[in-house]
Simulated scan of single mutants.
Amino acid sequence: MASNDNPWGGSNAPANPSRLGGSNPKLSQKFSENFGRTKEVTATGVRKTKAVASVGLEKTKVVASKVKEGASVGVNWIKVKYNKSKLFQKK
């Protein structure tokens, strides 16, 4: 066995780049591909955020109207109690 022979039976020649997908891509091409994927993911996230925000806004409007109704009922109850107590005091 020669000093440069591979003990696993292969040769010392480098791997065939065409078999592995061709030559290494340029750095600008890598950035472009990554940016494209990032842009898609971001767009999806923004769409989901908008949907959740619109649902949250609708729920907030409903809750705010319920709070407003409850507050007005409470204030009216206090007014009635106050007026009744004043009427009893005048007698």
Rank of each mutant, 00 (worst) to 15 (best):
M1G: 15
M1Q: 08
A2M: 03
A2D: 08
A2G: 12
A2K: 09
N4Q: 09
N6C: 15
P7S: 01
P7I: 04
P7R: 03
W8M: 14
W8E: 10
W8H: 13
W8Q: 12
W8L: 15
G10A: 10
S11N: 11
S11Y: 03
N12T: 15
N12G: 12
A13W: 04
P14M: 04
P14N: 05
A15E: 09
A15T: 06
A15Q: 08
N16M: 02
N16E: 04
P17L: 02
P17I: 02
S18V: 13
S18R: 14
S18C: 06
R19N: 14
R19M: 14
R19D: 13
L20R: 07
G22H: 03
N24Y: 09
N24I: 08
N24E: 09
P25S: 01
S28L: 11
Q29D: 15
K30G: 02
K30P: 00
F31M: 11
S32C: 03
S32M: 05
S32Y: 03
E33R: 12
N34W: 03
F35D: 05
F35V: 06
G36H: 01
G36D: 02
G36V: 01
R37Y: 01
T38E: 11
T38S: 15
T38N: 10
T38V: 07
K39A: 06
K39F: 07
E40S: 06
E40D: 05
T42M: 07
T42K: 07
T42F: 12
A43C: 00
A43N: 06
G45Q: 00
G45I: 00
G45H: 00
G45P: 00
V46M: 03
K48E: 12
K48R: 15
T49M: 14
T49I: 13
T49Y: 09
K50Q: 10
K50F: 06
K50C: 08
V52G: 02
A53L: 14
A53H: 09
S54I: 11
S54M: 10
S54P: 02
V55K: 15
V55P: 01
V55I: 13
L57A: 14
T60F: 11
T60S: 15
K61I: 12
K61P: 02
V62R: 09
V62I: 15
V63H: 07
S65C: 04
S65A: 14
K66L: 10
K66S: 04
K66R: 13
K68R: 07
K68P: 00
E69C: 01
G70K: 00
G70M: 01
A71M: 09
A71L: 08
S72W: 05
V73R: 14
V73S: 11
G74H: 00
G74Q: 00
V75T: 10
V75H: 04
N76G: 05
N76Y: 03
N76H: 04
W77Y: 10
I78E: 10
I78H: 11
V80L: 03
K81L: 06
Y82A: 13
Y82T: 13
N83H: 05
K84M: 05
K84I: 04
K84C: 03
K84N: 11
S85K: 08
K86P: 00
L87W: 06
L87A: 14
F88M: 13
F88V: 06
F88Y: 09
K90Q: 15
K90A: 11
K91T: 14
K91C: 10
